[in-house]
């Protein structure tokens, strides 16, 4: 097996996991009954999918670096570095945004559907 095949297999596995969870998140938007359960699907699954998608891109950058050619290697290093920064930005902003939406929804009076328990008290 040459280097390209090995990198291709690694990328295919990581990319498969990423695409599966991205699609689970989007399908969850249609399968779940109300805004809170939809937030569960959207936030968790797409964040997890993004982690693996960026791992795919980093693997691709490393593959291009191993191919040599000094002139373009700076561009691929930049791709890897900025991908890590993009991942950090997503990991911090996604749960915070989900929390903001859930809080706004509950305070504007959207009740959770099919709820077995609701201990939320109105605070004004």
């Amino acid at each position: 097996m040459d280097t390209e095949t090995i990198f291709l297999i690694i990328m295919a596995v990581l990319g498969g996991i990423s695409m599966f969870f991205m699609l689970i998140g989007v399908i969850g938007l249609h399968r779940f009954p109300d805004v809170y359960t939809r937030l569960h699907a959207a936030t968790k699954a797409t964040t997890f999918g993004s982690i693996f998608l960026i791992l795919v891109v980093i693997t691709y950058g490393i593959f291009k670096l191993t191919e040599g050619n000094g002139e373009t290697s700076g561009a691929f290093m930049h791709l890897i570095g900025m991908s890590i920064v993009a991942l950090l930005a997503l990991l911090i902003t996604n749960p915070t945004g989900a929390h903001a939406i859930a809080r706004a929804a509950r305070r504007s009076g959207v009740k959770p559907e099919q709820a077995v328990v609701d201990e939320f008290e109105e605070v004004d």
Binding site: F20, F21, I24, I27, G28, T37, F48, Q114, V116, D118
Partner: peptide, 24 residues
């Protein structure tokens, strides 16, 4: 725990078995 959570969410999306609520 993130991995575990995502597998649970995937199962819930596919089967549709949920029992939601807000707790304090």
């Amino acid at each position: 725990y993130l991995t575990k959570a995502n597998i649970e969410v995937a199962i819930m999306v596919i089967t549709g078995n949920i029992r939601p609520g807000i707790v304090k």
